[in-house]
């Protein structure tokens, strides 16, 4: 069965976090906290989504002297559409999976 791109649970959790406030620029660290993904898992996903044009990235100038410029991300319009589609698919698929244990009990 061919796998749908951008449908892994990790990618979905990133999309969900970004879709919560689609207009706000988000930083890697807070996304990591929100999704529970380590930097080594999170950034490759951000890299891929950016390459695919689902995400736009920009360097934000430092908030205080001595602090580094930070890289920030938000979904493009294509990204918003993708996130909605994938998350809806997930919810459709997870519903029957939750019903299964109940059926076993019924046997």
């Amino acid at each position: 069965m061919p796998r749908t791109p951008n449908s892994s649970p990790q990618t979905l959790s990133v999309l969900a976090a970004l879709l919560a406030e689609p207009s706000r620029w988000r930083h890697g660290y807070e996304l990591s906290k929100e999704t529970g993904l380590a930097s080594g898992s999170l950034y490759p996903i951000l890299m891929r989504l950016t390459q695919q044009g689902m995400l736009e990235a920009e360097w934000q100038s430092p908030v205080a002297p001595g602090r580094p410029a930070r890289h920030a991300y938000r979904l493009t319009s294509g990204g918003v559409a993708l996130a909605r589609t994938r998350l809806a698919e997930r919810d459709r698929h997870s519903a029957p999976a939750q019903a299964r244990p109940a059926m076993r009990v019924a046997w």
């Binding site: 930083h27 890697g28 660290y29 990591s32 950034y43 602090r67 890289h71």
Partner: peptide
């Protein structure tokens, strides 16, 4: 590189 720098820039948040 952009992505390496991006991770590096977040180090202060930990």
């Amino acid at each position: 590189g952009v992505w390496g720098e991006a991770v590096l820039a977040e180090m202060e948040e930990a």
